[in-house]
């Protein structure tokens, strides 16, 4: 099939970007979205042009590298998957597909579709850990953990840090991302010890690095490729109130 691609091109962080239009023929429904972009890039290189820069790595939906705004949705029209898993089956011959980087104040564009997500790391550095030194851990079974709590902690812990929640949010809030980590540790006995310090530090950093506030719209949950739930945000708020 043939598609028309409107892709955001931006040389670097300082330059002004714009949409460029490309016609791409020979697209197969079996391609993934990124493989379609690979083939566009091959074509561009052969024409002596610069390929479209985008982040990608594992291509199996777990590393969180890839992410682009496709036709108005983070990771494209399908739900529960990352861009690398998005199949071209979701598009049809003659479609025009608009591709943009994540848009958020805290995510400056580096080049084309590549953005700087370091702000997410900064929040994790501020408190996203349990302070345990290597070698000082007790025997694992010394402290049983309720299966329900452990399972819920797992469901929060599977966040891949792609930033789709921020991109989906009209306020560019990172609440879902931050609350997932806070929840994971809040649900486990080993994480309770530092719960107060953690939530204070992470929330403060979240505000400091330029993310917006949460207004409970729920776009983040709808677009999260890993189905991280809104209940995490409620839990983060509860933890936050408890901490003061």
């Amino acid at each position: 099939m043939k598609v028309t691609l409107k892709i955001w091109r931006q040389e670097n962080a300082r330059s002004k970007g714009s949409f460029q239009t490309y016609e791409l023929d020979g697209v197969s429904v079996e391609m993934s979205f990124l493989e379609m972009l690979d083939s566009l890039n091959t074509k561009l290189i052969k024409e002596g042009k610069e390929p479209v820069a985008f982040d990608h790595d594992c291509r199996e939906g777990i590393c969180g590298s890839c992410g682009m705004y496709i036709n108005g949705h983070p990771h494209g029209p399908a739900t529960g998957i990352t861009t690398c898993h998005l199949s071209m089956r979701y598009f049809k011959d003659g479609d025009t597909i608009t591709v943009e980087p994540w848009r958020a104040k805290a995510f400056p564009v580096i080049k084309d579709l590549i953005i700087d997500r370091n702000a997410l790391d900064k929040i994790q550095i501020a408190g996203g850990f349990i302070s345990v030194n290597v070698g000082s851990a007790a025997e694992s079974h010394a402290m049983p953990v309720k299966k329900n709590n452990s399972d819920d902690a797992f469901d929060s812990a599977i966040c891949i840090g792609c930033g789709a929640c921020v991109a989906a949010c009209k306020n560019a809030s990172a609440a879902l991302f931050v609350s997932a980590k806070i929840s994971q540790f809040a649900l486990l006995p080993q994480g309770r010890v530092e719960a107060k310090e953690r939530v204070r530090a992470m929330v403060a950093k979240m505000d400091e690095v330029g993310f917006g506030n949460c207004s409970n719209t729920g776009a983040c949950e709808a677009e999260c490729p890993k189905h991280i739930k809104l209940v995490n945000i409620a839990r983060m708020n509860r933890e936050f109130y408890k901490a003061y």
Partner: peptide, 12 residues
């Protein structure tokens, strides 16, 4: 033991 202490949610 170390992973468990760090909050890695292994299956239980």
């Amino acid at each position: 033991d170390h992973y468990t202490a760090m909050g890695v949610p292994f299956a239980r």
